Amino acid sequence: MNKETILIVDDEKEIRDLLDIYLKNEGYETLKAADGEEALNILVNNQVSLIILDVMMPKLDGIAACMKIREENNTPIIMLSAKSEDMDKIMGLTTGADDYLTKPFNPLELIARVKSQIRRYTRLNNNFSEQREAYKANIVEVDDLIINFDTHEVKIGEKEIKLTPTEFDILGLLARNKGKIFSIENIYESVWKEEFMQSDNTVMVHIRKIREKIEENTRKPKYIKTVWGVGYKIEK
């Protein structure tokens, strides 16, 4: 049985109660909040393994709450929204969410995504020693970009760069394989450990967000290069 605790944040009681039932049937513990402010208060005193976060809520909406959470917390976040436009999905992902699901959704699909995110997050935090042995390098440098896989820190010179776990995984994958071109499909399946869906633009959104954090000029990136029609790479 699972022992992880999931925080459900949605202003619709029916959705909170529905997800509560499905998650508890899978063995998860749950906490529930009706808005972003309540969620932040819960996180002060409770450790959770994943947050399901609705976008449209009173007091503090999901976008603002996600940004506040990401200031100090790397817990996986799955966003829910009644909006299906790409820009809404991009907004959710760029503020730090790890996944995005549009309402109405199949609760079983959400459960599958919850399990996937928790597996990835657990693997990220528990398998550093195995990764270090496999790569035989704990620090990778690309010019003045320094990636420390022991401490999970990224710096440009002396400036520390804050990345989400997913952003760190993508940057680490490219940096550890300097000169190798990774397609969007390669990156997605390497980082998410899930089969890639052709219509999914999640990787591109994350690449754009990483560039915004590490590049002086995102139109002429110094570190992550685009190989048009093929994918992305970090040059040797």
Rank of each mutant, 00 (worst) to 15 (best):
H206E: 10
E71Q: 15
G36Q: 00
V9H: 12
T5F: 15
F128V: 07
I90R: 11
G27M: 04
N186P: 02
S190Y: 15
D20N: 15
T5K: 15
S183V: 08
E29T: 13
V140F: 02
R70K: 09
D17N: 13
D20C: 13
R208I: 02
F168I: 02
L110H: 02
S199L: 05
S49Q: 09
V142R: 05
P76F: 10
N41W: 01
E133Y: 03
P58G: 08
P107I: 00
T5I: 15
G179Y: 02
R16M: 02
A39D: 01
L145K: 06
H152N: 09
A82W: 11
V142Y: 06
I51L: 04
D98P: 04
I69D: 10
M91L: 10
T102V: 15
Q131C: 00
M57S: 03
H206C: 06
V205D: 09
K32N: 03
D169L: 05
F168R: 09
A34Q: 06
W192H: 09
D98F: 07
T95I: 01
A134N: 04
V140W: 04
C66H: 02
L101D: 06
M204W: 02
A33T: 04
E38I: 05
I118H: 02
K222D: 13
I184P: 04
Q198S: 09
G229W: 12
F149M: 07
G172I: 02
N148Y: 11
A39H: 00
K225P: 01
V140N: 00
K68N: 13
K236M: 04
E26N: 12
V140R: 07
T166N: 13
N106E: 08
Q198G: 08
G92W: 07
K233S: 07
M79W: 11
N41C: 08
Q131K: 10
M1N: 14
E133F: 01
E26K: 15
M79E: 14
K236F: 03
A137S: 09
G27H: 07
T151C: 03
L93P: 00
L163E: 06
N41K: 12
L101C: 01
D98E: 08
E130A: 13
N125V: 01
N127V: 03
D99H: 06
E133M: 00
N45H: 11
